[in-house]
Every structure is written in C-alpha cells, then in structure tokens.
Computed example of a mutant assay.
Amino acid sequence: MDPGPAWLGPKASEDEVPVTRRFGGGLALRAVVPNAITAAALCSGLTGIRFAIVGDWKMALFAILLAGLLDGIDGRIARLLKAQSRFGAELDSLADSLSFGMAPALVLFLWSLQGLPRLGWFAALAFAICTALRLARFNARIDVEEQPHKMAGFLTGVPAPVGAGLAFLPMYLWIATENEVFRTPWAVAIWTAVIAFLLISNIATLSWKSLRPRSSWRLAMVGFGGLLFAALLTDPWWTLVVICVGYLLFMPLGIARYARVRRQRDGRTEPGETPHVQADA
C-alpha cells in the first residue's frame, strides 16, 4: 500500500517523531548537505575496513567512531535546514547497516574472530545481521503510532551506533593494556554475540530525551562533558572503556524507569512515587 506523500528525514536517533511534509517533486538543494554528511559517514565506516585489512587497528576504530559522530549530526542538520526527505531516511539506514553492522563485523573478524574460522565467522555474521534486522524493524515501525517505548521517550534495544561502539570494547582494552587476553577469539565471539542480541532485543533503553537532569545538575553536566572530551583527547582508549561500562551499567536504570512509566500508565502508581514526566518522542 502506498503510504502517501510522507517525507522523512535522516534520523539522529530512534526516539524522534518523523516530520511529514505534503509536497514533493525532487530533492531540494539544501537536502544535499545532510545527505552528504550521511554519505561521509558511510565512507568513513567502510574505510575502517580498509585500515583493518592492513592491520591499522587504531585507525580502523577511529574511522568507525567518526562514522558514528557523523551519523549523530546529519539528522539534526536536516531539521535545521528543513531538508528532511524520504531519500535521506533510506540513505541513512543503508549507511548505518554498512558502517555499524558490516564494518564492525569484518574488523572484529580480521582482528580476532578469524582465530575461530567457523564459529568466529558466525559471530561476525550474527552481529551484521542483527544490525540489519534492527534497522529494518525501525523502518517498518516508522509510521506506526502505537510504540510504547518511543511514546515514553525510550528506545527499543541498543541503537546501531552504540552497538558498534560496545562491540569494540575488547579492542579498546587490548589497545589500552596491550594484553593479548582481550584478543582471545572465544571471548570476543561471545561478547559479539551478546551485543548482537542486545541490538534486536525488546529491552527499553535510555535515550537522550529520557534523560532530564535537574536544573541544579546542568552546569555540572556541562563541565563533565568538557572533561570527557578532554579525556578522549588525552587517553581515548580508557575513556572509551569507561563510556562503554557506564552505558552498560545504566541499562538496568532504563528498564526500571520504563517499568515505572508502565505502572503509571496502567494506573498503578505506587503511593509516594514521583510522577514521571514523559519525554517528547
């Protein structure tokens, strides 16, 4: 069934509401800018494979992480320029599948998983396929209004760029410590499979819109953001380890907060429990 003249822009995150426009007629010139950024993210992710082939693991990681950064700004620039388009949305999903699915899978295989020629390859395939399935699920639901997680300001499962970053945790530790134990094929295969599962899981995870710090914390968070950026410049690998561990530790918080939202929606808010203000989704 033809969905009609709905034009959706490149997404910066999966908790956004698609912006619809009632006119079409081609790709506007201003739409070139966000789509060019998306194409740059795609090229950056695939270039990570090239660095992995020659054994330059640090540059391989940097290229894919840069792709994640570019993926986070293309949608925001599209909205700023009012340049959302169906073309941009499709290009964004394709770029995500290649940059955060196929590229990390091949990098991990070349780095460690090829030590298990069969099982290692299946672990890499599982990660790439789960990334594609996650993106396909998002695209299939993009016009569905009834999405409990999204309506409450949460995500379903781990986002593709975050999943790629988490999958590289053994590599961060290996580079930071120079300890070959983190390159053990069995351990890397199990870890890759766990992250692949989180990508397609139905677990409620926190999004930027679900994080609403109190006013008294905002200046502290600005300072923390500056320190985090400085840490990435001075000691990037240990900083990335801390970010990954912090994200994993916050996952139970997301599950608990969403459970509280569900109780409130069902009219079963516990006495004395602070009402949860839903984020715009």
Rank of each mutant, 00 (worst) to 15 (best):
D92K: 03
I53E: 13
P275F: 11
W208I: 13
V162L: 15
R76Q: 05
I142V: 15
V17S: 10
I175T: 09
F62R: 05
A160W: 03
V144R: 14
K209L: 04
F229S: 15
L125I: 13
G165V: 07
L249F: 07
S44Q: 11
G25R: 08
R86G: 09
V162M: 14
L42Y: 10
P159K: 00
A105H: 05
R50F: 08
E146I: 15
P236D: 12
P5R: 05
R257G: 13
Y172M: 01
I175H: 08
G153Y: 00
L61V: 11
L106W: 09
V194R: 01
V54R: 09
I142Y: 04
W111K: 12
L116M: 14
F250H: 09
L232V: 05
W238P: 02
K82V: 12
I73M: 09
R268T: 10
A6T: 08
F87S: 10
Y258L: 02
R218E: 09
L219S: 13
R118H: 13
L94Y: 06
T269R: 15
P159H: 01
N139T: 08
L69I: 15
T38P: 05
R212G: 10
T20Y: 14
I195H: 02
L233K: 02
A6F: 12
P275C: 06
V181M: 13
I203G: 01
A176H: 11
V144W: 07
D266V: 09
I129N: 06
P159Q: 08
G4I: 07
W121Q: 10
G24V: 05
G45P: 00
S97L: 11
A279Q: 05
T274V: 15
